[in-house]
């Protein structure tokens, strides 16, 4: 079967589901961040697949570039927050961090 738009969409759908599973089930905050990265990658595959097959030419790729920029900013901020949480609570497990203030 010729590889077409649906194959790429399936790939991104499965990748999205895996990222969602990681976000929901992992205890460690950094692994939750990795799951978010998987979700953003799945969205990017969708944008670029539609830009290739939907006749959008280059616009989908531009959106993908902006998604990447925001992913970089997001992971920098999130890791700074995780480091601060580790300094305060000596743990990064998301189910043990249940106080707003020590």
């Amino acid at each position: 079967m010729q590889v077409g738009l649906t194959h790429y969409l399936f790939l991104s759908g499965i990748l999205f589901a895996m990222g969602l599973y990681g976000v929901i089930t992992r205890r460690n905050a950094i692994l939750v961040l990795m799951g978010i990265e998987l979700i953003l990658n799945a969205a990017n595959i969708n944008f670029i697949a539609f830009s290739r097959y939907g006749g959008m030419q280059i616009d989908g790729q531009m959106i993908a570039v902006f998604v990447m920029i925001l992913a970089a900013a997001e992971v920098a901020i999130a890791l700074a927050i995780v480091l601060n949480i580790y300094k305060q609570f000596r743990t990064v497990n998301v189910d043990e961090i249940n106080k707003l203030k020590e």
Binding site: F16, I24, R27
Partner: peptide, 22 residues
């Protein structure tokens, strides 16, 4: 090592969302 939690609701939500998307 790291622990995991909410396996059953996580799997259910993942299956529902992934199945709906596909």
């Amino acid at each position: 090592k790291t622990g995991i939690l909410n396996i059953i609701p996580g799997s259910m939500i993942t299956a529902i969302v992934g199945g709906t998307l596909c």
